[in-house]
Amino acid sequence: MIVPFGHVLMLAGMLFLLGVFCTVTRRNLIMIILGVEVMLNAAAIAFVGAALHWQSLEGQAFVLFIMAIAATEVSVGLALIVYAYRRSGSFDPSSYNLFR
């Protein structure tokens, strides 16, 4: 007997909120990606907790896919950031407003 499932969910939710906060408020593209990683992390915790709660390996399998998605997102995202940085010399998302 570890902890109630609700506590796991609350921890995941709190982490998710931190990730959202980072993504939304930090004026830095790398930090935005970092916030996304934090959110994915929170989701993974919730899935693993759910797998334990319902005694099913489905949740753990899903975390595997989350990991793959995270790896993809980070590699492409960081490459895009570097590319954009070379073109504009800035990490500030507010300077990327050509479409405005």
Binding site: I30, N41, L52, Q60, L64, M67, A70, V74
Partner: peptide, 30 residues
């Protein structure tokens, strides 16, 4: 936490991929 919640393989992969590869990639870019 993964290890605690009964997912040892995921815990290992997490360390390798997340803490290892992804974070190193971040560090590298920074």
């Amino acid at each position: 936490l993964f290890y605690l919640l009964g997912a040892p393989l995921l815990a290992a992969l997490w360390v390798i991929i997340y803490a290892g590869a992804i974070m190193v990639l971040f560090l590298f870019i920074v």
